[in-house]
Write a protein that binds this DNA or RNA. Sequence first.
DNA 1: GGTCGACTATCAAACGTTTGACATGGCGCA
DNA 2: TGCGCCATGTCAAACGTTTGATAGTCGACC
Lengths: 170, 170
Amino acid sequence: MTLHDEGPVGADALDRVTWALRRAELAVTALKEQRLRSLGMAAAHYSLLIAVHVDPGLAGAELARRLNVTPQAVASLVTRLEGRGQLERRPHPRHRHVQELHLTDAGRDALRKADSVITEIEQQITEKLGAKDSTQLKALLGQVTDAIQQVQPAGPFSRPVTLRDDGTPG
Amino acid sequence: MTLHDEGPVGADALDRVTWALRRAELAVTALKEQRLRSLGMAAAHYSLLIAVHVDPGLAGAELARRLNVTPQAVASLVTRLEGRGQLERRPHPRHRHVQELHLTDAGRDALRKADSVITEIEQQITEKLGAKDSTQLKALLGQVTDAIQQVQPAGPFSRPVTLRDDGTPG
DNA sequence: GGTCGACTATCAAACGTTTGACATGGCGCA
DNA sequence: TGCGCCATGTCAAACGTTTGATAGTCGACC
């Protein structure tokens, strides 16, 4: 936009906020996945369980929007977790075609164990940063999210996108 | 670890650093994908191209490590980008079985356009935060990454993990 | 100089996800 | 009351990725 085109492309690429953001998120996700693995749970399962825990009776489509995945992916996960006896599908009282999602006791138990693992990671980070910096980091990250969603009204683009070989949208 | 087990699980889940981190990264990635889409390029392609641009002659396996994906995924992307004439495979001077990756002129051109889009997003963020906070955000994110890698020596777990239905590692 | 070890690249198969399309059911409006 | 509209959920297919296994090649050590 200004005069950054002068230098070689990507000269400052390694020193960008979005890169630091990506690397941090990648590292955290990888560690979560590793720790959760010993409990026989994937990060996606944890995300789904805790979302249902926070808002019991959630519908699959709504859940998909919150997790930024397609309803199909949610259905897949739900079927799996239901098979494990951790999640339960109940008919919606008003909308017959909709089904509510609820945690079973086994699901709550699994979530409790998984959450302690996640909490432990969270604590390792906050201890390293200190209370003050942790709070500010959260605030700054919130500003980033706001700045993005200000430009992009959280519409149909919040979900992943793929491209065909020729570049046309899939 | 201390006494957080008292309250209901996940009561503070929405106020965690790692959640703020994830949401911010998700938003940024989605926006990048959206903007890059109009150029017929996916974020993964951009990441690969810029990595090759920064370190020309990179081998596929090394590239895979840097991008935190498997060599297979890199090979898939490389084949595609090579088909578009943006990337080039050259024989390695010493190691016959290894192939160097280089950008073509078309690749450099595509990268330049893509990078301007990414830079624009970066600027929108830094403008919103201000120079000072942007710098600190980068520093804090760096601390998070360090804190994680301090526990997890960047070994074979830096790559994504999947789980089978029964919970055993795939 | 020959052999062991490590690394690179590639093939085949399984998995999970997105995409596209369709049937079902509730709700607003004329 | 009847009709169109929107949302939810599910099915079939395509895509991209990881996993597992194999062959080829260089460098080091004996």
